[in-house]
Design a binder for these strands. Structure first.
Lengths: 262, 262
DNA sequence: CTCAATTTGAGCGATAATGAGCGAAAATGA
DNA sequence: TCATTTTCGCTCATTATCGCTCAAATTGAG
């Protein structure tokens, strides 16, 4: 049986059942598992099916662009669980009447969602998703900084390379940021260079700069460097933080909260 | 039975009964409890179900305060149907490569959602909800103007009384706005006075200012006046527009599209 | 026919899925 | 409340599948 015949067969069965198994197809087409495997790879490459262990399934309905269910706080894996624990600790630091800045990222979304009951809170942010968490809270005054929309996996943020003049005259009791990576040599790094200007400026506009770092951030380098790791700030992370970072922060005298992972 | 078959079975039964038991599924699929347990974990991780002792339940959709599901495009009544028709006509006016401004409101949300496939579109807006509709379209450059967050029934917008300096240097091919009310004496009126400055400025920054007016807007007065009704602009509305408005616009030589309500 | 390119099949260690067993925790019922 | 039963979470051994490479078979061109 030639490969186009096999492909036709596979697609037919796939259409009918929603999924087919490797052994099933091998039996029907008479081809070896190696060949069937290659067929499956091919079909996946064409986007006609999706490979699974032991078989193929119909490609999941693609959500329309822009219509994606915006949910930047859902816990999907262990790293998300870490983020949630970190967000809780960060939220515990915020008190009524304070003015804070919130960065963009999933941890920050979770963090924002935990602030709803704090009285007379003033929040400034570049995160559209964080705004969604707080928009309807009458006790919280939310200001969204403007700029071009950039979309990450779990967040939407605004980026404005000339943002600094907008911030003039503000002072924050606390600033909460996440980054894409931390590295002892390169420091805190982010993917978009337009963020570095804002974040660096923010570090000068507060006495309490919190970095929220889950364990996926350590020893990773993103494109643009913001500031060196010894820059004075407070770190909230989990016990998964590698020893060399723990030691480094301790040596620098930087307050470093390591939360247990329940 | 492979795991995708089990998943299909489980989801099917879950949909039908609202809950399934572990032993039940084990019997049906022929898999061991260990495997079924893992399946359940997987489904919970995907957010498709919620684990309980001895089984699975449908995830309860809880509406936390502030976490209200932001859906600014849902059609709930006849007025919404009008808005949808108006939005479609407005979207038909937009061409590839243009730069447009979108205001805040349900009609504008619907309008934004219809722009996703237009190539090389530049969108500037104060509507956070409109941004959500367009954020993930790579063909569209979206800029969100900053400001304080204000929440309406069907939208979230930013308001900045000093916005005008940010707009300096921009020019829009078309500007699409809605208002809270139109009145032949008072003109276009909105609830928040901070919007009038921006909207008045916008009317000077384009040659094509479209007003999107459903029939609930006529003969209503909101708090703040923006500009008089004879101010040059194009109107998109439905045949429900009262005759005196039709006559007025015609006398003023203002282009006025009256759409049939299907 | 020869030779190269493509397609297929087989073997290999690595990886993922599965099933069974065990102590701990939770639900059940007196 | 306490004892019993069920379920849970976890680990470990087993099995199936995966990804890969290399050899054999098939195909097509000169």
């Amino acid at each position: 049986m030639r490969y186009w015949e096999r492909e036709k067969q596979v697609l037919h069965l796939l259409e009918a059942n929603g999924a087919v198994s490797m052994t099933e197809i091998c039996a029907i087409t008479g081809a070896s598992v190696a060949t069937t495997r290659r067929d499956f790879d091919e079909l996946q490459k064409k986007g006609l099916a999706q490979r699974t262990h032991g078989g193929l399934r119909l490609p999941q309905k693609k959500e329309e662009p822009g219509r994606r269910y915006v949910n930047g706080t859902e816990i999907l894996d262990d790293i998300d669980r870490e983020k949630q624990i970190i967000a809780r600790e960060a939220a515990a630091q915020v008190q009524a009447g304070e003015s804070i800045f919130i960065g963009a990222g999933k941890t920050c979304n979770m963090f924002a969602a935990l602030l709803r009951d704090i009285e007379r809170l003033t929040v400034v942010t570049t995160s559209v998703t964080a705004v969604l968490e707080l928009a309807e809270c009458p006790n919280i005054s939310v200001t969204l900084l403007g700029g071009d929309i950039h979309t990450g996996k779990n967040y939407i943020e605004t980026l404005d390379p000339d943002i600094n003049h907008t911030l003039r005259g503000y002072f924050f009791d606390k600033v909460f940021l996440t980054v894409e990576g931390v590295d002892l040599e390169r420091g805190y790094t982010v993917q978009d260079k337009n963020r570095t200007g804002l974040y660096t400026q923010l570090s000068r506009m507060t006495r309490r700069l919190y970095m929220l770092l889950d364990s996926a951030k350590f020893d990773r380098r993103a494109f643009a460097t913001m500031f060196p790791p010894e820059k004075a700030c407070r770190v909230i992370s989990t016990r998964n933080m590698p020893d060399k970072f723990v030691e480094f922060y301790r040596k620098q005298g930087i307050s470093c909260t390591l939360l247990p992972i329940e």
